[in-house]
Computed example of a mutant assay.
Amino acid sequence: MELGNNLYNARKKSGLSQEEVSEKLGVSRQTISKWELGETLPDIRQSKRLSNLYHLSLDELIDFDLDVQEIQEVIDKTSDEVTDKVDWTKAWGKKYPVLITYQQQVKTDFYAKELGILLDDLRQKYNYNELDAMLVLKDILATVWKTRK
Rank of each mutant, 00 (worst) to 15 (best):
E36D: 04
L25V: 11
L99I: 07
S51V: 11
L53A: 13
V144G: 01
L122S: 06
W92Y: 14
E23M: 08
T78S: 02
T40V: 15
Q105R: 10
Y111F: 11
T108W: 07
E39P: 02
A10N: 04
L131H: 06
Y126M: 07
A142S: 14
R29E: 12
I71R: 13
Y8A: 03
L137C: 02
L115E: 06
E19D: 09
I140A: 14
D139K: 09
L25K: 06
E2I: 03
F64W: 05
E60P: 13
L119A: 03
Q69H: 14
S28K: 05
D63E: 13
K24M: 03
Y8W: 02
R29Y: 02
E114T: 04
Y54M: 14
E73Q: 12
K125Q: 07
L56K: 15
S79Q: 05
G93H: 01
V98A: 05
K12P: 00
F110G: 00
G116I: 00
R148K: 12
R49A: 15
D43V: 10
N5M: 02
K77I: 02
W35P: 01
E73G: 00
I100A: 08
I32L: 12
A91R: 10
E81Q: 12
I32G: 08
M134E: 09
Q46G: 05
Q105T: 10
D67A: 05
N129E: 06
Q30M: 15
R29M: 08
I32D: 06
K90P: 09
D132T: 15
V98S: 04
Y126D: 00
P97R: 06
D84H: 12
N9Y: 06
L25G: 07
D139A: 03
E2F: 07
L53Q: 15
K24S: 10
G4R: 07
K95F: 13
M134H: 03
V27Q: 05
K138S: 10
A112N: 11
A133W: 03
K13L: 06
P97C: 09
E114S: 02
I32F: 09
M134L: 12
Y126P: 00
S14Q: 06
T108Y: 10
V98Y: 06
E70T: 03
D84A: 13
G26E: 04
K113G: 00
L66P: 01
G4M: 04
I75Y: 05
T147K: 11
V21T: 07
I71D: 13
L135H: 09
D120H: 09
W88H: 10
M1T: 08
W92E: 07
K94N: 05
D139P: 01
K13W: 04
K77E: 08
V21L: 01
Q104T: 04
K113E: 05
Q124R: 14
V21M: 02
L99Q: 07
Y128M: 11
P42K: 13
A133H: 05
G116P: 04
W88E: 03
K125T: 04
P42N: 13
Y8R: 13
H55N: 15
T143W: 01
E130H: 01
L61N: 13
T143E: 10
K138M: 09
G116H: 05
R11E: 05
K12E: 12
E23I: 04
N52Y: 14
W145A: 14
G26Q: 03
K138A: 11
